[in-house]
Design a protein around this nucleic acid. Structure first.
Lengths: 340, 340
DNA sequence: ATTAGCACTCGATGACAGTGAGTGCTAACA
DNA sequence: TGTTAGCACTCACTGTCATCGAGTGCTAAT
C-alpha cells in the first residue's frame, strides 16, 4: 500500500490544506520540520499519490489539494486520537452543568455549543418519542368557542394546540371526554397514541352522546394534525464564513436543503448507530457534494433516540470535530440517562 | 419645486430601476411610451434632478440610479395607489381562511405569506401581552425530582418549563401551592404576574411550611426566568436572491443583526403606530444601510399589539409591498379583533 | 424651449507580456 | 538504488494597452 513517507506527505498535505484552504506545493512540504526530504523527492511521492487518487491538482502546475478519496483515507487511517483542548472541554461541561430538565433545552444548547465551537453548522434531530409516554392530557376552555388542548409526556415535553369548539359542544362535555381519555391513555407510548385513540375509544365514546363524536373529531385534529419533526439547527450562518462558500448560489441551495426539515430528518435517521462520516459525493444530496456531514447517535438506555450532526465543507477539521461530536453525543446520552 | 416632466422622469427612473437593478440612460427613458421627449431633453432634466439630489451616477458617464432622497420622494409623492393583483389577495385571504386559533400560528403564517409574496424577508414582532391574562397555572409531576409547570393565557398562549423539584418538597405540596396560586392569580394580566406573585403571595405562603418558600422559589424560576421575545422571521434566505447582496460579507452582517432578537424587537417596537418606511441611512443600524424597512403595527382593539415588518434592499417594489404589508396588518388586526 | 450632433468619459472586454509558484523529467550523486 | 540538483515547462495571476459602446454634457441649429 502506501509507504510511510507517502503517508507522511498525505498527512501534511491534508493537515495544511485544512487550515489554509490553499493548494500545497512540494517545497512547502519539504520545509516542514517533520519532513526531511528535498522538494524533488516530495514531488515524486506526490505524483504517486495523485496517481492513486488521494490528491489532485487544481491546474497543471498548481500545488496539490486532497481529493475526496484522500479525505476518506485520512479519516479512516491517519487520524491521531485528538485531545480536546481544556477550553473546549470546559465549554461543553459548562453547557451541561446547569440543571436542565427539558429535552428541547438540552438539545438546543448542544446545537449552539457545537456550532459555536466548530464554526460549522450543527443539526440535531431531537429525541424520538419511542419510549415517551403520555403523562397527561388537558383541555382548557378559553371562551365559549375556543379551547386549548395540552399534551404532556413523561419526558416533560409539552405539545399544545388551540382549536375552536363547535357550538353544540359544551365545555362540560369536553371535560368528561378528557377525563375518559386520561383514564384510558395515560401511560400509552406517544407513537401508539393515535392508533389507541382510534381503536379503543371510538366505540366507547359512542355510548355517550353523538356530541362526543364531534368532540373527539376536533380533539384528534387538534392533537395530531401536525406531526412536528424536532430538528434543531445551530450556526446556520457559519456556512457564510467558509471560503468555499463565497458563491451565493451554493449557499442558497444548501440553505434550501437544510430548511426541508422532513428530508433532513430522514437523512439523519438513516444513519446507523454510532458515528458516521459522509464526505463530499458520499452524500446523496446534490447541494451537499462539497460538504462533509458527521453524524453520531445519542441514546437513552438501549433505545436509539436521536442524531447529532455537523455540516461543513469537505475541508473540515476532522480530528477536532470528530472528538467534539463524539463528546457531545456522549454528554447527551449521559444527561438523558441520568434522568431515568 | 419639480416640474411635471421632472416628476415623470424621476418616476420612470425609479420604476425602471426597481425592476432591472441597472442604471437608466436618457435614451432608454425617451423610448418609453409615456415619455415624448428626446433623449437630449431628458438629459437636461436628469442633470437637474441630479443636482437636486434625487438621482445619482455610478460613474461619470453612466446612467442614473435613484438616491435615497429619490426613493424618499418617490414613496412620499409619486406612489400611485396600487391595486393588489387578485392572486395576491387570494393568497392572503386563503392564509387567513382556515380557522386558526393561536396567535403564534397566525403570526407565523403571516410572516411566511408576506415573505413568499414579496421575496423579501419578513419580521413580525409577536403580540405583546398587555391585555393577556392568566387563564390557568398547572404543575404536573413527571417523577419524584422533576415536574413541568404550564401557564395558559386567555389568548391560548401556552408557556411551559420543566424544573427539578428539591427532595424536601412533596408533590402534594406543589399541588396545594398551585391551587393557591390559581385562586389568587387567574385573571391577572401577565405583565403584572411577576409582581403580583411576589407582593401578594409571599407572606401568604409563609403561613404554610417553609417548604412552600422553596417551592415558590423554584416555581418562579421556572416560569419567569426567560422573558422570551416573540419574533417571527420569514424568508430569511430571500435576501440571497437580491442582486445587491452578492457580497457574502453584507449578508453576514445582515443576518447577524436579524438574529439579535432583542435588538430587532426594540427596533420594531420603536416605530409609531401605523405604517413606517425607513430607507437606507434612515435606518440606524449599520448593516441595514442598503436596506429599506417597512413596518406597520397591528392591534387588538385600541391596544397596540405588535409590529409587522418587511426588510429588503432600498431598491424595493414599494408600491406593491406597501399594499401587502398594509393588507396583512389589517388582516391581523381583524383576525385578532374577531376573537374577542 | 427642444433637439440634433458631437466630443468626451469610463466601465467592460479581450489580447498580450511578464512574473512566480509550481510541476515533471533527467542526469548526477552517495 | 534511492535521493537530489537542475532545468524546461505550465499556467494562474497581474498589469498594461487598445477597442468598444453606452452614456453624458455642451453647443448650435430649429
Amino acid at each position: 500500500m502506501l509507504s510511510n513517507r507517502q503517508l507522511l506527505v498525505l498527512q501534511v498535505i491534508i493537515d495544511e490544506f485544512i487550515h489554509t484552504a490553499q493548494p500545497i506545493g512540494s517545497r512547502a512540504i519539504s520545509k516542514k520540520d517533520e519532513v526531511s526530504f528535498s522538494s524533488a523527492t516530495i514531488r515524486n511521492e506526490m505524483a504517486d499519490l495523485e496517481e492513486m487518487g488521494f490528491i489532485e491538482k487544481t491546474h497543471s502546475s498548481s500545488g496539490r489539494v486532497p481529493s475526496e478519496k484522500g479525505y476518506r483515507f485520512y479519516v479512516d487511517h491517519l487520524l491521531s486520537p485528538f485531545r480536546l483542548s481544556n477550553t473546549d472541554v470546559d465549554i461543553i461541561s459548562d453547557a451541561f452543568a446547569k440543571g436542565m430538565i427539558e429535552f428541547e433545552q438540552v438539545v438546543q444548547k448542544s446545537a449552539k455549543v457545537l456550532s459555536d465551537l466548530t464554526n460549522y453548522t450543527s443539526i440535531i434531530l431531537g429525541p424520538e418519542v419511542f419510549d415517551t409516554k403520555l403523562k397527561q392530557l388537558q383541555i382548557i376552555s378559553l371562551s365559549n368557542q375556543t379551547a386549548v388542548a395540552i399534551l404532556v409526556t413523561n419526558t416533560g415535553h409539552v405539545e399544545h394546540r388551540s382549536f375552536s369548539v363547535p357550538a353544540n359542544i359544551q365545555s362540560s362535555d369536553l371535560e368528561k371526554l378528557v377525563n375518559i381519555l386520561n383514564d384510558r391513555l395515560v401511560g400509552v407510548p406517544i407513537v401508539q397514541l393515535h392508533e389507541k385513540l382510534s381503536d379503543e375509544l371510538t366505540h366507547l365514546l359512542h355510548k355517550y352522546t353523538s356530541d362526543f363524536d364531534a368532540a373527539y373529531h376536533y380533539l384528534k385534529g387538534a392533537l395530531f394534525d401536525q406531526q412536528s419533526v424536532q430538528l434543531y439547527v445551530g450556526g446556520k450562518t457559519n456556512i457564510l464564513m467558509q471560503p468555499e462558500f463565497k458563491d451565493v448560489e451554493k449557499i442558497r441551495s444548501l440553505y434550501s436543503i437544510i430548511e426541508q426539515e422532513e428530508e433532513m430528518a430522514e437523512l439523519l435517521r438513516s444513519n446507523k448507530d454510532g458515528m458516521n462520516i459522509m464526505i463530499g459525493h458520499e452524500n446523496k444530496i446534490d447541494a451537499m457534494q462539497d460538504c462533509s456531514l458527521i453524524t453520531a447517535t445519542y441514546s437513552l438506555g438501549d433505545q436509539q433516540m436521536g442524531t447529532i450532526a455537523l455540516l461543513g465543507p469537505t475541508r473540515m477539521e476532522y480530528s477536532r470535530v470528530i472528538s467534539l461530536v463524539n463528546m457531545l453525543s456522549k454528554q447527551l446520552t449521559n444527561t438523558f440517562h441520568s434522568w431515568y
